[in-house]
Simulated scan of single mutants.
Amino acid sequence: MDEAGEKMEAARPAPVLVRLPAHLVVLFPGADRLVPLHAASVAEMVEGLDALWPGMRERICDETPAIRRHINVFVDGRRARLATPLTPGADVFVITAISGG
């Protein structure tokens, strides 16, 4: 990388760290459970995941678009929506609900 590229990379904010559930990752060959991603909102994060693994958006979001009913996204320990902003270095968990009887 040249000096200009190094300066641009250094000026870029730290990525958020996205933690994906194991049963979602197995649906996407090559997907990781921990994904560093540059995103300013949860919606941007979902788009970034879908760019890496096409089809992931549909697994996380419904057609309205909103986070699916049985999926929860937490940012730094707080429940989030697609419009929730992400700060550099945020810890994001994508969690699927378990139901049954």
Rank of each mutant, 00 (worst) to 15 (best):
F28N: 09
A22H: 08
A40T: 14
V42Y: 05
A10G: 01
E3C: 08
A51T: 12
F93S: 11
D32C: 09
A39Q: 08
P15G: 03
L34N: 05
P88Q: 11
E3P: 06
H70M: 11
L20N: 04
M56P: 07
I98L: 15
T84Q: 14
I67W: 02
M8Y: 04
L82G: 10
R57E: 01
E58V: 03
I95D: 04
N72I: 04
G5A: 02
A14G: 07
P21V: 05
A83G: 13
A97S: 15
A80N: 13
A66Y: 05
V92C: 09
L52R: 13
N72G: 05
A4Q: 07
A43Y: 00
L86M: 13
E9S: 06
E44M: 01
L34G: 08
I71W: 00
E3F: 03
E58M: 03
R12S: 11
V92L: 01
P29G: 14
M8K: 08
G101F: 14
G5M: 00
A51C: 01
K7T: 04
D76Q: 13
E63W: 05
D91N: 15
C61P: 00
L24Y: 03
A80W: 12
V46F: 01
V18I: 15
D62G: 11
A31Q: 03
G55M: 08
R57Q: 05
T87N: 15
L34H: 13
L49I: 07
W53L: 02
G77P: 08
A66P: 02
F28A: 11
L86R: 06
C61S: 08
E3I: 11
L34D: 11
D91W: 08
R19V: 12
E47G: 07
L52E: 02
V26T: 10
L49N: 05
D76A: 13
A11K: 02
M56T: 04
